[in-house]
């Protein structure tokens, strides 16, 4: 449990948010061209990093907007929060 600094609303309790998992997984441009292996990679395979991870969050009980976060999964320390579409800050 931790406090998240929503880029739109400011600091709120983590229980107001829902996590959308690993960020920057690009939706396939040509879904019909994809092989089964590539589909599996896109749908199921995850880095599941122990350490600094890029992930998506939604302020579901607040502004309901999506944003990105850089968080260390080994200690839950948040390094940065940035809006969708923005370049991830260098940490």
């Amino acid at each position: 449990m931790f406090i998240i600094n929503c880029p739109y609303c400011g600091e709120r309790d983590q229980s107001e948010f829902s996590c959308g998992g690993e960020a920057h997984i690009v939706r396939p441009k040509q879904p019909t061209e994809l092989s089964d292996d590539e589909w599996a990679e896109y749908l199921f395979m995850r880095k599941n990093i122990k350490g600094v991870q890029f992930e998506r969050w939604n302020h579901i009980h607040g502004c309901r907007k999506w944003f990105n976060m850089i968080r260390d999964t080994s200690n839950d320390k948040i390094h940065a929060v940035y809006k969708m579409g923005e370049k991830p800050p260098v940490i």
Partner: peptide
């Protein structure tokens, strides 16, 4: 819970979230 960590050492990705 650390399966993905070990898998990474072998250059493998698993369909897991810890």
């Amino acid at each position: 819970g650390h399966s993905s960590v070990i898998a990474n050492m072998a250059g493998l990705k698993l369909p897991l979230e810890s």
